[in-house]
Amino acid sequence: MNLTVNGKPSTVDGAESLNVTELLSALKVAQAEYVTVELNGEVLEREAFDATTVKDGDAVEFLY
């Protein structure tokens, strides 16, 4: 899956889609429990991480 992460191209191997929690784990995001996630310009509530799917071509920003 090809994404733009914090403005840079990134690839997650072996996945066509992941939820936000899985993406944080796959990318080994440090202190993931404290990060705010913006997906395609929309800031996500932490409670929505498990239910929100990240797909090929999406833009993700991790805000600390």
Rank of each mutant, 00 (worst) to 15 (best):
L3C: 05
L24R: 00
A32N: 09
N40I: 03
V12Y: 08
D58K: 00
S10D: 06
N19I: 05
S25F: 10
F62W: 09
A51P: 03
T21H: 08
A30K: 09
V29A: 04
E42A: 10
E61P: 00
E22D: 08
A32C: 12
V5H: 03
G41L: 03
S17Y: 11
M1V: 08
D13H: 15
N40Y: 02
R46H: 08
L39I: 09
V37C: 04
K28W: 05
T52H: 06
P9G: 05
T52W: 05
V12I: 14
D50A: 09
L3M: 05
A15S: 09
L3R: 00
L63P: 04
N6V: 01
E33G: 09
A32F: 10
A32Y: 10
G7A: 03
V37S: 01
N6Q: 05
L23N: 01
G41M: 03
Y34D: 09
K55C: 08
L3T: 01
E33C: 12
A15V: 14
T21R: 07
G7W: 03
G7Y: 03
D58T: 02
E47H: 11
V29M: 06
K8A: 08
K55L: 07
A30P: 14
V43S: 07
E61G: 07
E38D: 05
L27S: 00
D50Y: 07
S25H: 12
E42C: 12
T53F: 15
E38F: 15
D13M: 14
L44F: 05
D58P: 01
V60P: 04
L63F: 14
N19Y: 06
T36S: 09
A48R: 11
A26M: 12
N40D: 02
M1L: 12
N2L: 11
A32P: 14
P9N: 06
L39G: 01
T36Y: 09
A30W: 14
T21M: 08
Y34W: 13
G7L: 02
D13P: 14
S25Y: 09
T53Y: 15
T53A: 09
K55I: 08
N40C: 04
T52L: 06
E33Q: 11
D50L: 08
T52K: 05
G41W: 03
L27G: 00
S10K: 13
R46Q: 07
E22S: 08
A32I: 13
Q31K: 11
E45K: 11
V5R: 00
S10Q: 15
N6S: 06
Q31H: 15
T4Y: 09
T36W: 10
N2Q: 12
D58R: 00
G7P: 01
V29Q: 04
L44E: 03
S25E: 13
V37L: 06
L39W: 04
Y34Q: 10
D13F: 15
G14P: 05
L23R: 00
G14A: 09
E61H: 11
L23T: 04
G41E: 02
G57D: 04
F62H: 03
V29I: 12
N2S: 12
E33R: 04
A32E: 08
L63N: 12
E22N: 08
P9R: 06
F62N: 02
N40A: 00
E38K: 15
L27E: 02
Y64E: 08
V12Q: 03
M1R: 00
V60W: 04
N40W: 02
A15N: 08
D50N: 10
S17A: 09
K28M: 10
E16M: 14
F49R: 00
L24A: 02
D56Q: 07
E61D: 11
Q31N: 15
A32Q: 11
E47G: 07
E16A: 14
G14C: 09
V54K: 01
L23K: 00
E61K: 14
D50T: 09
E38M: 15
A59V: 15
K28L: 08
S10C: 15
A30R: 06
V35N: 03
D50V: 07
V60H: 03
E61R: 15
E16T: 15
G57C: 05
T11A: 08
E45D: 13
L24W: 02
R46I: 06
L27Y: 06
V43R: 12
L63W: 15
Q31R: 08
T11H: 15
T21E: 05
L18V: 07
E16Y: 13
T52Q: 06
F49H: 11
V29G: 05
E38C: 15
T36P: 02
K28I: 06
L18A: 03
D56S: 10
G7C: 06
K8D: 06
F62Y: 07
D56F: 04
N40H: 01
R46T: 06
L44Q: 00
E33V: 08
L24K: 00
N2A: 10
A59P: 02
N2W: 11
K28D: 10
E42Q: 13
E38G: 07
V60M: 05
P9E: 07
V12T: 04
L39R: 00
E47V: 07
F62Q: 02
G57W: 03
Y64G: 08
D50M: 06
A51Y: 15
D56Y: 05
N6E: 02
P9D: 06
E47K: 07
S25A: 14
A15G: 09
A51W: 14
K8C: 13
F62A: 03
K8W: 10
D56G: 07
E47L: 07
N19K: 07
T11K: 14
V29W: 08
E22T: 07
F49A: 02
V43G: 05
R46L: 06
P9F: 08
V60R: 00
L39E: 00
